[in-house]
């Protein structure tokens, strides 16, 4: 599964994207796996209410299942326009 990071989430984690092998059932499970991995993930995911998630390029939420999902993206609330 590919994981993408944008804006300050990317800066805190230090890479724009990575490929992981995971058994996580939901986005929340995946976040917990990442937090357990290294401090930089714990720093980025300290407050998930400050984050948004997209699954296969559609906005989703942290309870969503990861069944069949190929690309997960984490980012702060968007500031377009």
């Amino acid at each position: 599964m590919d994981i993408l990071y944008f804006a300050w989430v990317r800066e805190r984690i230090g890479v724009p994207r990575e490929t992981v092998t995971t058994e996580a059932k939901t986005v929340n499970d995946l976040v917990q796996e990442l937090i357990a991995k290294e401090e930089r993930y714990a720093a980025a995911f300290a407050d998930i209410s400050a984050l948004r998630v997209a699954l296969d390029q559609d906005l989703s939420d942290f309870d969503a299942p990861l069944d069949g999902v190929r690309e997960v993206a984490f980012f702060p609330p968007m500031t377009g326009g």
Binding site: A54, P76, M78, G80
Partner: peptide
């Protein structure tokens, strides 16, 4: 403003900071 995946960062006198929604 809030549903298109863009993020703004301001560069000011050598500093840079992300614009909060």
């Amino acid at each position: 403003k809030s549903r298109a995946p863009f993020w703004k960062k301001e560069h000011t006198g050598g500093d840079a900071s992300w614009v909060d929604a």
